[in-house]
Design a binder for these strands. Structure first.
Lengths: 197, 197
DNA sequence: AGTTATAACCTAGGGCTCCTAGGCGAGCAA
DNA sequence: TTGCTCGCCTAGGAGCCCTAGGTTATAACT
């Protein structure tokens, strides 16, 4: 009998590929195992269970997405950096819908495993890096980071859930949203300026 | 044998309550049935299956959320209406996490059933109503609607997934986001004003 | 009131899921 | 060559979704 040479990483990668091709809900132990030429029970030597596997896919996706964003934004600043950041985010979600969906799941990840993953921490650093050019200081910086992440994630989630009708290309709306975010960051009100219009 | 008096509506409501209490993934035919004092096979007279049931929960949630927003925004205009709209959205998501999660699922709803549900159409009308005060015209209106929905949904999704650290109260960031959206809508650039900063 | 028809709820069971327990043998170390 | 480790196996339990077919409560009609 030839051994398959499984590792936690290979199992996670197979699950991620399956998620992108067939949807996250189609990721079952049996299907991942069959893709690796193995029985489902064999996976439990490498992965604690289905929930653990999903968590690993989520961590993988976070790392990959962060890497793409880092590559896209390196050497850029200002609106250039903002657009590159946002486009890389959206592009990753489009290219890897299953992996991206895994990141949306309420977190039930092995803390020890999560601590070793560089993705989330690095993602925060990158976001702060983009905002550095806009001259914001805490706590405005935190608020701005949250606004950016909310807008990017919300747009991508609605778009891929079919939440936008077909009357206008999402690309145009995306560009306008980025214009709006750039303007918002440029003129961020550093103090409350009550405008009860 | 006493009959339980089930209807599709009662089954959907039980599923929605279970989703809010235990999480959407805990909504199984068996658990919904037991909550109604019935065997799982009995539900299939009223509901086509689990996917259909989830779709009905999603439709219920959309209708309820729209209703709350309508109540909150009636008689308001401008930023007042924007804030009421957004707060009602976020409040619904907080109060009914399971129902809200159901609305995020990639749509696989019986089209005939969906056509009878007033929620989605009414939601679009309400959003356009809020924007009326800002004097936008198509296609800017569509772009603005998408920006609002993206920001609201993205913020709520990240917030309830634990995506924000604990270093600053989300409420503050939410208020700043609404300030930013109000400013964006007030000064919406009706033509492209390329600012390659 | 008695009869009939509808349909609400049941039991039984198939095929799928995740997961555990225990066994065999492949390939490495001595 | 011998022996050990551990990678992958088979077997099986519990629970999932769903279908088929049987009972029987209830509503409708004479």
């Amino acid at each position: 009998m030839v051994r398959a040479g499984l590792t936690a990483e290979r199992v996670t990668l197979a699950a991620a590929e399956l998620a992108d091709e067939a949807g996250l809900d189609q990721v079952t132990m049996a299907r991942v195992a069959s893709r690796l030429g193995v029985k489902d029970a064999s996976l439990y030597s490498h992965v604690r269970g289905l929930e653990d596997l999903r968590g690993r896919v989520a961590l993988l996706a976070a790392d990959e997405k962060t890497l793409r964003i880092a590559e896209a934004t390196v050497g850029r600043a200002g609106k250039d950096a903002l657009v590159a950041f946002a486009d890389a985010w959206r592009d990753y979600a489009h290219r890897h819908p299953g992996r991206y969906a895994a990141t949306q799941i309420r977190i039930t990840i092995d803390p020890e495993l999560a601590a070793r993953a560089p993705g989330p921490r690095r993602a925060v650093e990158l976001t702060y890096g983009v905002l550095r050019g806009y001259g914001l200081a805490e706590p405005d910086l935190t608020d701005a980071v949250r606004l950016l992440r909310s807008t990017f994630h919300g747009f991508v989630a609605l778009e891929s859930a079919g939440g936008f009708g077909h009357e206008r290309a999402p690309q145009r709306s995306w560009e306008r949203a980025l214009d709006a975010l750039h303007a918002t960051l440029t003129h961020w009100p550093s103090a409350r300026d009550g405008d009860p219009s």
